[in-house]
Computed example of a mutant assay.
Amino acid sequence: MTTQPKFAQIKQHIIDHIRAYTWLENDRVPSENELAEQFQVSRMTARRALSELTDAGILTRSQGLGTFVASLKSQSSLLEIRNIADEVKERGGAYSCTVLTLESIIALAPIAIALGVEANSQVYRSVLVHHENEQPLQVEERFVNPHLANDYLQQDFTVLTPHEYLSQVAPLTEARHTVEAITPNRTICEWLNLFNEEPCLQVIRRTWSAVGIVSFARLISPGSKYRLGGHLTFRK
């Protein structure tokens, strides 16, 4: 029997506590130092475990305060969710898309939690590169709840975007975003035609319809080519 790497053991330890409700939403989880001591590993190994769970939206980090269990309930978004194809066309650009992956996979625990499905159940995964004027603009990796979008794998995403399809079959009601600057790995650099490790903007997004969690997506764009914006109206 293959032994799990230490960072994976730490991740599973945290997930087990969350699933057992011994650590609730907004509870502080052990620090890198505490986990490193408990599992007899380096801080780097503990940091990897916490970082991967944070990237998956399971944990959230607050500078100077620590790492906490993220809210697993729907939360209204302050950012407008727009269709990237419409954004490109509104700027007068030509939109196109390359589909890199469209598959059914087994949901490991972090993805299962993010989608609100059973661990080791089947979920859908897509990886696309969105282009503006034939230049890569954004990499989109998306995991989809098949119970709410059962025809997802049959769609031609060079004709309509995943956002357009999901808005039709499971109209979005709420979303949660995490936005951060990242250094892209070699694969992301290749997909975005980056010749150096230019900082990128990463958006982690979970979306809900009226009947449940629809998708969990990671959107990565070069910092020099993309920005987030929005208009907020505050009522008295």
Rank of each mutant, 00 (worst) to 15 (best):
S51D: 09
I10C: 00
Q168S: 08
L148Q: 11
T45R: 01
T98F: 14
W208M: 09
G64Q: 04
E25Y: 03
A107Q: 02
T183H: 11
A210K: 12
A46Q: 02
A20Y: 00
L72P: 09
L53R: 05
Q202P: 02
V139G: 00
S71V: 09
M44C: 08
L160R: 09
E174K: 07
S224W: 04
V169D: 11
A36H: 04
L228P: 03
R61W: 12
I14C: 01
P222D: 03
A175Q: 13
E90I: 07
G212C: 10
T207V: 14
R176K: 15
H231F: 09
I14Y: 02
T101C: 05
H177R: 13
N196L: 05
L153E: 04
V169H: 10
R28S: 13
I81D: 08
I220H: 00
R235S: 10
T22C: 05
Y124E: 04
H231R: 13
V139S: 00
I14N: 01
T178K: 14
L79N: 11
V127T: 15
A85E: 08
A94H: 12
L153P: 01
K89M: 11
L228V: 09
R19K: 10
F157P: 03
A8T: 14
D27V: 01
F234P: 02
E197D: 07
R48E: 12
E32N: 06
L148S: 04
I213W: 04
L194R: 00
Q63G: 03
V41K: 06
Q138C: 13
S104K: 14
E198L: 11
R91A: 15
S51Y: 11
V214R: 00
V127W: 00
I18K: 00
L153Y: 02
I10P: 01
N185S: 05
A114Y: 13
L108R: 12
V179G: 04
E37W: 05
S167C: 13
L108I: 12
R125Q: 14
R227I: 06
S96M: 01
V179A: 05
L172M: 12
T158Q: 13
H163N: 05
A114C: 05
Y21M: 08
T178H: 15
E140F: 01
E197H: 10
G66F: 14
G57L: 02
F157K: 03
D86Q: 11
T233C: 08
I10Q: 01
D151E: 15
E90T: 13
N145A: 04
A36L: 07
E87K: 09
